[in-house]
Simulated assay, not measured.
Amino acid sequence: MYASLEDMVLRFGEREVRTLTDRDNTGEIDAAVLAGGLQAASDEINGYIGGRYTLPLPVVPSNLRGIAYDIARYRLTGTERVCTDEIRGRYRAAIRYLENVANGWVTLATTQNGGTLQGNAGAAFFSGRRIWGRNQTGGGGF
């Protein structure tokens, strides 16, 4: 996963994370509900970047953590949890970013050594020997 419970609390505060996850009104953060939201966010991210990068990534770029926060937050809203314009806007911005990564217009952040993660997209063309030509037909003309 790209983010953790602790990451979500640091990013949005305990009160908001509790509001997003406490479906049984216990007054506590429901770690299982949060884990489901974070897994959904990671799966969505992987769906976009998996065609360009080898998964799992060797290092999770900090920008993907931010994307995971915003996607998980959006995914945890619903029937009883209000999806605000801010939450929806941040989700849409996250998806636009992932679409740009998938299209190769944006590369993911750096590795631990300071380099850029290398994508695995591209095409290779190979030429074989000619299998049909004038000399193979046994005739020279009409």
Rank of each mutant, 00 (worst) to 15 (best):
D7G: 14
A93W: 07
A31C: 07
R11I: 04
R90H: 06
D70C: 07
A124H: 11
A94K: 00
E99A: 07
L117V: 08
E99W: 06
A32T: 11
R73H: 04
G37H: 02
Q136E: 11
W105F: 15
L64N: 00
T79Q: 15
T137S: 09
R23S: 09
E16R: 05
T110M: 12
G119F: 07
D85T: 12
A109G: 12
T137F: 07
V17G: 01
E14V: 09
P58E: 12
L108K: 00
A68H: 01
V82W: 11
R65T: 15
V9L: 06
F12V: 02
N100T: 10
Q39N: 13
G122I: 07
L38R: 01
A35Y: 05
G66N: 10
E16G: 02
F125L: 14
A31L: 08
S127R: 10
Y69P: 00
L55S: 06
N113K: 11
F142N: 13
F126A: 15
Y74S: 03
A72I: 04
A31R: 12
N46S: 10
Y69G: 00
M8Q: 05
T116H: 08
L57M: 13
S42H: 03
A35P: 02
W105M: 12
L55G: 05
N25R: 15
L10T: 13
L20M: 09
A31M: 09
T110Q: 13
E14I: 14
R134Q: 12
T21N: 05
V17C: 04
W105Y: 13
V9T: 06
Y97Q: 04
A72K: 00
N63M: 15
R92F: 07
D70T: 05
G89N: 06
I67H: 02
E28W: 10
I49A: 01
A72D: 02
R52P: 02
R65M: 14
D70P: 03
P61N: 04
Y74E: 04
T111D: 14
A32Q: 11
G139Y: 14
L34V: 08
I87M: 03
N25K: 15
N103R: 11
R81E: 15
D85E: 09
R18N: 04
S127Q: 09
Y91C: 01
G114K: 03
R75V: 06
A109T: 15
Q112Y: 08
E28Y: 12
A31W: 05
A121V: 10
T26E: 07
A121F: 14
Q118I: 14
E14T: 12
L10Q: 14
G51L: 08
G51T: 09
G104F: 06
G138Q: 07
G47R: 11
A109S: 14
R88I: 06
R15Y: 08
Y74Q: 03
E28F: 15
G128F: 09
Q39V: 12
R75Y: 06
T116S: 12
N113F: 12
R75L: 07
R65G: 11
G37K: 01
Y69S: 01
S62E: 11
V33W: 01
Q136D: 10
Q136H: 07
Y48I: 03
L57G: 09
